[in-house]
């Protein structure tokens, strides 16, 4: 029982990160109908920026805030310079975002080298243990921050004018444009949101997962799987998908085989795609598909 609880808790912590990254995917997808293959890079960039700022002497909170803003700006630039010009073709969108990922990774390798850069845990490296189940303090930060970010996102999307306009765009871009919603601005907001959420994910997991220039790829793929499981484009589904994926992975590693852990995640992805392509909660604005 202790083992099971330990697996589940570890899974949920990793799952929070997958969920946040998945939410980043949905923000971009809703605004542009592009799957951003460079999504993981936001998390990597933010973590490395924050680590450098901390080394340079900045207080942790400031370092994190600056890193998140920097990544937000980078994402807006990416949208302006590359994505906006790419049109709606699926393949072209995929290749351009892959190109963006390659460039960001290459630049990160130039700036930070190929070694991982550590970021200190927010409230010390210790952990809390009860009944043999251990939870690192940073894990509580991960869970708490994820909950707050998700709540804010929910409020933004359902309670603010801008959020409603954003959703309208996601459901039917043309109709939204006819209603006077500036779709270009909404694309920018989509990328800003995805960059910020991804950056937050990167920064909170960095003390646990130790980011380096190529860490974004694996996170991106897992985030994507979470997205599909949850229902593509659906932010709440994405979060749920992340938790489910994280828990499945650790339970699989614990009870079945650690070697096939990753394969199990992808088998889960295939199953969902085939049996329930809309994911757990169905696709956001699925009507148009």
């Amino acid at each position: 029982m202790t083992e099971f609880a330990q697996y589940l808790i570890s899974g949920l912590v990793v799952g929070c990160i997958y969920g946040l990254i998945a939410t980043g995917f949905t923000a971009v997808y809703n605004a542009t109908h592009i799957v951003n293959f460079a999504q993981g890079e936001s998390s990597m960039l933010a973590a490395l920026c924050a680590a450098s700022l901390v080394v340079a002497g900045a207080p942790l909170l400031l370092a994190i805030a600056v890193a998140v803003v920097v990544v937000g700006v980078v994402n807006i630039l990416v949208e302006r310079l590359a994505i906006r010009r790419s049109g709606t073709d699926v393949t072209r969108g995929i290749i351009i975002t892959i190109g963006v990922g390659i460039v960001l990774q290459g630049l990160a390798a130039l700036a930070w080298g190929t070694d991982a850069q550590p970021l200190p845990a927010f409230s010390g490296p210790g952990s809390i243990s009860a009944y043999g189940v251990v939870v690192p303090r940073q894990a509580l930060w991960v869970v708490g921050t994820t909950a707050v970010v998700m709540a804010l996102l929910y409020v933004f999307l359902t309670r603010t004018f801008l959020g409603k306009a954003f959703r309208a765009c996601a459901m039917n871009g043309q109709a939204a444009a006819l209603m006077g919603i500036p779709t270009g601005l909404m694309r920018g907001i989509g990328f800003l949101l995805s960059g910020t959420v991804g950056a937050v994910a990167g920064v909170i997991i960095a003390p646990i997962a130790l980011m380096q220039y190529d860490s974004g790829v694996a996170l991106g793929i897992k985030g994507f799987v979470a997205c599909i499981i949850g229902g593509f484009g659906n932010p709440i589904g994405a979060a749920l998908g992340g938790l489910l994926l994280g828990a499945t992975e650790t339970l699989a590693a614990g009870y079945i085989s650690s070697g096939f852990k990753n394969a199990i995640a992808f088998v889960l992805l295939l199953l969902f795609l085939l049996v329930r392509p809309g994911g757990l909660l169905g696709e956001f604005g699925a009507a148009k598909r």
Binding site: A82, I98, G99, V100, Q105, L110
Partner: peptide
């Protein structure tokens, strides 16, 4: 720099 330029070319 080769990787960066390769990526830029793609884009």
């Amino acid at each position: 720099l080769d990787v960066v330029i390769y990526g830029l070319l793609l884009i």
